[in-house]
C-alpha cells in the first residue's frame, strides 16, 4: 500500500494533480448544487407572493412550504 502511494518516488507530482483535478470537479458540483438550492428557495418565496403568475407558467418548481412569505404585497 505504501509502495502504491509512493508512485516510484513521483508522489509529489502525481497526487497533487489528482487532488486538484478531482477537487475541482467536486467543488464545481457542490457549488452548483448549493447555488441551485439557494436560488430555488428564493424563487419559491417570490412565487408565493405572486401565485397567479407562478401557476400560469406550467412548470414544477420545488416550493418548500416551510418558507414564510415576505411582507411586500404583490397587487
Amino acid at each position: 500500500m505504501a509502495e502504491f502511494f509512493a508512485m516510484d518516488g513521483y508522489a509529489f507530482y502525481i497526487w497533487p494533480t489528482y487532488i486538484v483535478t478531482l477537487g475541482f470537479m467536486i467543488w464545481l458540483v457542490v457549488s452548483t448544487l448549493r447555488g441551485l438550492a439557494a436560488d430555488r428557495k428564493v424563487l419559491a418565496e417570490l412565487e408565493k407572493n405572486a401565485p397567479h403568475r407562478a401557476r400560469r407558467r406550467g412548470e414544477t418548481a420545488s416550493s418548500s412550504p416551510s418558507l414564510r412569505g415576505a411582507e411586500t404585497s404583490d397587487a
Partner: peptide, 25 residues
C-alpha cells in the same frame, strides 16, 4: 454539471424577472 448549471441559470433568470415585475407593481 452543464444541465445543473443551466437549471440554476433558468431559476436565476426567473428570480430576476419576478423581481422586476414586483418592482413595477
Amino acid at each position: 454539471v452543464l444541465l445543473l448549471r443551466m437549471e440554476r441559470e433558468i431559476v436565476g433568470r426567473k428570480i430576476r424577472q419576478l423581481r422586476l415585475l414586483q418592482a413595477q407593481a
